[in-house]
């Protein structure tokens, strides 16, 4: 059993609690030991960096310095934390002066960041350490006949730390197929849902999401699957609003990829946080639960 330092991120304990619950359950079932990082703080998220880039790097660096002490790879289920922590890591790697300044600040709490910790996305560790083949071999309830639209979201694929093709991502498809479901292909798969702008620029974001749903539904998808807490919240919590704005009847459950894997592994519903989903997935999953 391989061990990792686990960095949940804020949303996997709140708006994306289904991601947190299902990540832990699936990791356990697949032999990954997740040891939660003691005393972690916010990753230093995009909004933080937009207001104060240096402070955001320091906030991220505290997590990195804490994680470094464990000597294990850090894994996070959150695509956004994954990017933010890596961004801070790379800034400090490229600029020794910046790293020195960050370390001066960290020293106030007796910490030092050296630059040795690896920051990984949970789903990447599932694919590369556990392997897709191993996941497939542990499937108890193949999701035969289920048509799934894979939606990786931007952060998993496009920033320089991404592990998939930035314009034609296929990693999620391989997981969807490994659990016996059918990966639906649709043209807008790699387009943005609007992310955190949904609060301040709702009109724009509803339009972006409408196009995703329209595309996925026209291509026969019965549900969508994503690793990203923000994409999932947007697509799940705003789906009714999109239906009323565009006079549509989308009823597409949006599952975290770990929830989909968990169903196929035969894990119980409450171990996957399925009741936390707003667009009820029970109908499309009924055959497999």
């Amino acid at each position: 059993m391989k061990s990792y330092t686990y960095y949940p991120g804020c949303s996997s304990e709140a708006t994306a609690v289904g991601l947190g619950i299902s990540s832990r359950s699936v990791a356990e079932a697949l032999g990954m030991e997740l040891k939660e990082l003691e005393g972690w703080n916010c990753c230093g998220s995009t909004p933080y960096g937009s207001l104060d880039e240096l402070e955001a790097i320091v906030v991220a660096a505290r997590n990195l310095a804490l994680a470094e002490k464990t000597g294990l790879d850090l894994v996070t289920p959150c695509s956004s934390c994954f990017v933010t922590l890596n961004k801070a890591r790379v800034h400090m790697m490229d600029k020794p002066q910046l790293k020195a300044k960050v370390n001066e600040a960290l020293a106030a709490a007796g910490l030092e960041y050296k630059g040795t910790v690896k920051v990984r996305l949970l789903i990447e560790a599932l694919m590369n350490d556990v392997t897709v083949k191993e996941i497939a071999s542990k499937v108890k309830k193949p999701l035969k006949g289920l048509k799934v639209a894979p939606y990786p979201g931007c952060q998993e694929v496009r920033p320089r730390f991404g592990f998939d093709h930035p314009e034609n991502p296929i990693a999620l498809d391989s997981i969807v197929e490994a659990v016996g479901a059918e990966a639906v292909s649709y043209p807008s798969k790699s387009k943005c849902c609007g992310g955190s702008a949904v609060i301040a620029e709702e009109g724009l974001c509803l339009e972006l999401m409408y196009k995703l749903f329209d595309d996925a539904a026209k291509n026969g998808a019965e549900c969508m699957v994503t690793p990203c807490p923000l994409c999932q919240m947007n697509l799940d919590a705003y789906q009714a609003k999109i239906n009323s704005k565009y006079n549509t009847n989308f009823n597409l459950p949006v599952l975290f990829v770990t929830q989909l894997i968990g169903v196929a592994l035969g894990l119980k519903q409450d171990k996957l946080g399925l009741k936390k989903n707003i667009v009820n997935p029970n109908k499309v999953l009924a055959k497999y639960l």
Binding site: G39, N41, R62, A109
Partner: peptide, 13 residues
């Protein structure tokens, strides 16, 4: 849990 430490770090920054 580490709120106090984080405050110290940001103050030092």
């Amino acid at each position: 849990k580490g709120k106090k430490d984080l405050d110290l770090i940001l103050k030092k920054l």
